[in-house]
């Protein structure tokens, strides 16, 4: 009983989140940076288990951990810095970069929604699938805006990132895509930050293009998804 005020203070939940995250980074490193043991996936699994074990509701946890959640906003703003650093490359390759970002971002969202629809997803689930290729902070922001489930959207984003890394060697071999800039860009559009991290393992150039693709695709998706959403009402059923 005496620990009750502690349960309601942010200190406990922020400390827990940081401690578990450090552990998750260590586990990920030990596992050779496998995308399926991404620190965020490992952290949220461990914290969920702890909360279920202690019978602490998510709302109690989030009332403390929201201070970390808040930092996502300024971090999204900070994505402008890597975008700015790549301005020369973007200017030189403006047309291919813009067309590939637009096409890729629309393909990612529309294909997820259509496959979801065909396999019987309801409206909220379709909305939640739509931002799945967008970097999580932007995806959470989009989900909050369009009435999807933000935390489920964040989870789907992470799984999509892991899948993109998994598919990458196969896709690149199939298309004989050997250029590092092109590989990084493909990974960034589809697999956001996780794809970008994977691209950095090819080269710094691949990583820079991954980061560029992630930022552009995230911003595009944030603008076009809310515009495309009314089309959902045209779907039969």
């Amino acid at each position: 009983m005496s620990a009750k005020p502690l349960l309601e203070s942010p200190l406990l939940w922020i400390t827990l989140t940081l401690a578990v995250f450090c552990l998750a980074v260590w586990i990920n490193r030990k596992a050779g940076r496998s995308p399926f043991l991404h620190p965020v996936l490992v952290s949220l699994s461990i914290i969920i288990l702890i909360l279920l074990w202690l019978e602490v509701p998510y709302q109690t946890y989030f009332s403390g951990a929201q201070f970390l959640h808040f930092m996502m906003g300024p971090a999204i703003v900070a994505l402008a810095i890597p975008l700015y650093d790549n301005r020369q490359r973007v200017r030189r390759l403006l047309l291919p970069v813009l067309s590939a970002t637009l096409t890729g971002a629309v393909t990612a969202a529309v294909s997820a929604v259509v496959i979801g629809y065909l396999s019987g997803a309801d409206r909220v689930l379709m909305l939640t699938l739509a931002p799945k290729s967008v970097t999580s902070p932007i995806a959470i922001g989009i989900a909050e805006k369009i009435g999807a489930e933000p935390s489920l959207a964040a989870g789907l984003v992470l799984i999509t990132g892991a899948l993109s890394c998994l598919f990458a060697p196969f896709v690149f071999r199939l298309l004989r895509l050997n250029d590092h800039a092109a590989r990084g860009f493909t990974l960034g559009v589809s697999g956001h930050a996780m794809g970008t991290a994977y691209a950095f393992e090819y080269s710094a150039l691949a990583g820079a293009f991954g980061g560029l693709a992630m930022g552009l695709a995230g911003a595009f998706t944030a603008f076009f998804l809310p515009v495309l959403l009314p089309l959902l009402d045209w779907l039969p059923g």
Partner: peptide, 17 residues
């Protein structure tokens, strides 16, 4: 901030529960 961005995603991700 960007170098520890993944940490900020955890509180929302726990909402998966």
């Amino acid at each position: 901030l960007l170098s520890i961005l993944p940490l900020f995603l955890v509180p929302a991700g726990v909402g998966l529960m």
